[in-house]
Design a protein around this nucleic acid. Structure first.
Lengths: 341, 341
DNA sequence: TCTTTTTGGTTATTCGTTTAAGTTAAAATT
DNA sequence: AATTTTAACTTAAACGAATAACCAAAAAGA
């Protein structure tokens, strides 16, 4: 069933080179000969073997995406964006999930580096990227980071405007008269730090003291959408609601939101009367709750697209230039007002 | 940077064959020689070129997944399951999204067939698989279908127990006293037909007449999680609520649920007092609504795992047997009682 | 001691392409 | 008519590994 170029050549009565030239249009061939070749191709149902082609050409037309937590819909949307963009350029997506585990991430990256991808997009499990620097050192492949910035490692990165987004959210709460605003995050990484900075700036600009008790994080270990429902964030929320005079909660990402909102629901607090609530990361389900939940929407699909573009761009550039400068691209967030504040 | 086996061999002072034998353990080598080779490997930071290896071995260690709609979280979970299972066996996932478009699906499948994957898992866009049969005819690659059965095409398929699941849901509604139960589906395909059969059986067993007006479907064209919120299903729901005496709605999949529930919310109907509501497909957000929404949970991750297993199994079998029998595996659904009924 | 077996390698072919470098006959130029 | 150019191919050498077939030296058996 799987026919090779050799058999096509034989059937058409030409050399394999001619078949290749016809198929790739890389050299002029007499129309008559071309027809014979094409007919043979059809008759044998021939398809090029990409392995052979890629081996020869030194490329695989494959882009790897090593994702920290593929069970999180935020990253699924990023993957969606990447796939969409790659498809347009004839590249394909090779996906590996690190399941928020560093060792798995290292394995995945090693696999990708050895594994014949032309470029690599990484949504890292943590900001500690010393091991990544080592791994990726003197590696000629374009590498793009998305969602989290690797510390001390110069490379292309696609991030949301975390600081501004958080600032917008908290500012809106303040404008509505809130001063006792809690910050709940799933865990403190570079991205979360930026959101915290936005939170701080909004408070400080309005001369509202920052209360360290109001700032809480979930575990630093592996977390998942599922386990968070009654996880550490849930308990922090419960503590804040029970023992502190907070009137509003800013949940700094979708993982935290699951914990925070589960708690708010179960304690039967009225939103926004008893407690105002706003979250980073939008999703369709935020309109299904009563009331609907206000959000700072990231655009993960766009982030994926941009990351893919960046990777492809570097791929083309790398032919001509050896050294290139690294970009940090920010995808802007969008404030979405809903009934929860 | 990218060193080949040749350079390793040269540095170690042996032939490339020896290097290969050491690396694969395919032949006995003197410990002393082995050490020299391994040292050279380390020194040159050598990694096998999978393209070359695969070309030679005639395999790619890649499994393709052509998914009908990757923006739907149901399929994202399937992908998750597939990836998990493949990772265990040293295979990797190549993902292509058909975006519910037949032409894209055909392109994707062609790409995969030509594209050096060892097996193919397909979540088809529609049940009309005549073109698939053609495409996959006399193709030696294992092909597994998931979520939808291709009509008139014999191959391995992984499906949920759709009939029973729907039956359970509707039976529960009947037991609660409902007789005017609507069936809302996103569109009528083989899977939806099975669910409709379950709905019918439950009604018939309780001698409740099946009212054709109560059975509605969304568009047959491409639909997405997003566009459905105010799409055709929404309008069907509105019509049913306004002009018919229904007391309960069974939403037959997650896409329909978005439309149905959006409508219920916006018309300010009390659930379950005014209208009881239950849906096929579970998701964490169903517990975030007020009240929480009862569901017939599929296990998409498990479906993905099983599909991956099936593909890998056939892959190994195909070495020894030329002809094998096709399996249809059903993953059982689970009824989850929540406040909406 | 002479033959046989085992050990530890090497050589050479193959996988299916692409492509640089040749080749030959026809067309164009002088 | 002799020479150069062009068109249309073909030949052969990669790409990087795996592996069957071969070989020399050492070990074992007789």
């Amino acid at each position: 069933m799987k026919s090779s170029i050799k058999e096509v050549a034989h059937l058409a009565g030409v050399s394999i080179a001619t078949v290749s030239y016809v198929l790739n249009g890389t050299k002029k061939v007499r129309p008559e000969t071309e027809k014979r070749v094409l007919d043979s191709v059809r008759k044998l149902n021939y398809h090029v073997n990409p392995l052979a082609r890629n081996l020869r050409k030194g490329e695989s037309k494959l882009i790897g995406f090593v994702v920290s937590d593929f069970s999180n819909y935020f990253f699924q949307e990023i993957a969606l964006g990447i796939e969409k963009q790659l498809a347009k350029s004839g590249y394909r997506l090779l996906l590996m999930d690190s399941k928020e585990q560093k060792e798995t991430e290292v394995d995945n990256i090693k696999n990708m580096l050895a594994g014949a991808v032309d470029a690599l997009i990484i949504a890292p499990t943590s900001e500690d990227s010393s091991f990544l620097r080592l791994l990726l050192a003197n590696n000629p492949m374009p590498v793009v980071f998305v969602d989290r910035r690797p510390e001390g490692y110069e490379t292309d990165t696609v991030l949301a405007t975390n600081e501004t987004g958080a600032y917008d959210a908290v500012k809106t709460l303040i404008d509505k008269g809130h001063t006792q605003i809690a910050f709940l995050g799933s865990r403190l990484d570079s991205t979360m730090q930026e959101r915290l900075n936005g939170y701080r700036r909004a408070l400080e600009e309005s001369s509202i003291p920052v209360n360290a008790n109001y700032i809480r994080f979930g575990s630093h270990e592996s977390v998942s959408q599922r386990s968070l429902r009654h996880g550490i964030v849930y308990h922090h929320t419960f503590d804040l609601i029970s023992n502190y005079d907070i009137t509003a909660i800013f949940s700094a990402n979708n993982l935290a939101t699951v914990g925070v909102y589960s708690c708010i629901k179960e304690t039967n607090l009225k939103v926004p009367q008893d407690i105002a609530f706003i979250t980073f990361d939008d999703s369709f389900w935020l309109t299904m709750t009563t009331p609907a939940i206000a959000a700072v929407a990231q655009n993960p699909e766009e982030m994926g697209k941009v990351a893919a573009n960046l990777a492809l761009e570097k791929l083309l550039d790398s032919q001509s230039f050896e050294e290139y400068s690294f970009q940090e691209i920010r995808i802007s967030t969008q404030f979405i007002l809903r009934g929860s504040i």
